[in-house]
Design a protein around this nucleic acid. Sequence first.
RNA 1: ACUCCGUUAGUCAAAUGGCUAAGACGCCUGACUUUCUAUCAGGAAUUAAGGGUUCAAUUCCCUUACGGAGUACCA
Length: 510
Amino acid sequence: MSNNVRVRFAPSPTGPLHIGGVRTALFNYLFAKKHNGTFVLRIEDTDQNRYVEGAEDYIVESLNWCGIPFDEGPNTNEQFSPYRQSERKHLYKQYAEELIAKGKAYYAFDTAESLDAHRKDHEAKGKTFIYNWHNREKLTNSISLSKEEVDKRIANGEDYVIRFKMLDLKNQGSHGTIRTRDLIRGSVSFKMELLDDKVIFKSDGMPTYHLANIVDDHLMKISHVIRGEEWLPSVPLHIALYHALGWQAPEFAHLPLILKPTGKGKLSKRDGDKLGFPVFPLEWTDPKTGDISRGYKEDGYFPEAMVNFLAFLGWNPGTEQEIFSLDELVNAFDLERVHKAGARFDPEKIKWFNHHYMQDQSNDDLANQFKASQPELESIDVNYISLVVGLVKERATFIGDFWNLTHYFFSAPTSYDEKASKKALKEGTKDVLEKVIELVNSVDDFTTDNLQNTIKGWITSNDIGFGKVMMPLRLALVGALQGPDVFDIMFMIGKKETVKRIENIISFIP
RNA sequence: ACUCCGUUAGUCAAAUGGCUAAGACGCCUGACUUUCUAUCAGGAAUUAAGGGUUCAAUUCCCUUACGGAGUACCA
């Protein structure tokens, strides 16, 4: 596995890229980079009905925002292009026909309605309709029909699909099982007799996922297929297809699914709406309905935080280290350490990662982001904002938290928190604050240290009790009982403003 | 219903056929003779159940339960 590692992320452009898809892409990326391989993006747009305008661009932008760009893909002029299946349409039919010629596939004329009827009929009897070896001779296809009849139907332009002959009793004799090795799950086996004859080529002239997928993986020399667990049941089909075409199958690795934070099933857009967190990397506007789905980026998450969090959903390094840069992830990543069981999505934990990555950024960087996001700060010196940010950033998770945390650095409080007032404003508070004004005025060199020494000195020498002074003082400056060190706040807003705010609250006290 | 996959605290999860089953998020408590959503210190909480194999099982095997996925001319 040196330089021959080629992996692909192969989404369908049917809407915004789901967070689970991002994780799949991430694991592909990590695996590729770990082995000095190539990460390919292939757009699987074989279903024209489900194509959604803008979805492909969204996928590309999302990967870029996450910092996991592809090496080959649409609009890169690489040797295996094109990378959109719709542009590779001409490639697939010949392989379907090759399979027919080899007796491994056949034409089928059954209409969707008649198959539906069969399914309903079976269901009513408590059985499952499977189109395969046990009934294919009774259905309408090139096995049950004469060659003339088949030719005639095709010549008449009748709709047909091509089905893969999954198990051929005449040639394969026993039913048996098909066994394979999955890089994550180990040995996996399937009973051949229960498998159905899947449609590999549709009546609209397009291949189905299964055919297009293996043809492209083969042609693009994909060495490892890393995809979601929902594909595990298709593995026997894919392996049989590789065999039938005389190709070597790639290695498979099926990733565990990402589950809802609570309740049953896999994570869906609805869970995000209900519980108030995004399930998409970027904001998405539905081109048809105009509905907007929020994105991690717009909600204030840093891509590093999301990537770090996602990496730990279904994988861990086996050490106690949790904070990983992308490079460190590449180094540590190993498919063997990927879990088999589905992982519940925890919106709280990704916040914790975000908080952590916030602390890593410089005050200046954060100040610039803060300033850009808050109209009130337009005329404020960014250096001042930077100092403010430095005082509060350890209690912020998002840039969007800053305003709530710091507005009193920029303008005086216009009201006082009711509960805090009850707690802080007691009998005698007025006198205490009046004395504090005196003390503040007496500090000529207005620094945090000088303020602190003066006021704390006064408190201790008069044996007053810190709470009696500090709480009303904080309330005067902030409007609530929150924020960083009171002396830092006084220093930042300056002597004049400090005095003004204390006078304000004195006049507020009845 | 059938097929496949899975199951360590509320969640993400580590570990080994054998000492008190890591760590993180969250939660609770305390501290910081000034607040807190921060910080620090503590705490509660887990091997799904039942059978085997074994001197010994969370680890290996079986059964049950539960969970997930798939059973489309969707991917």
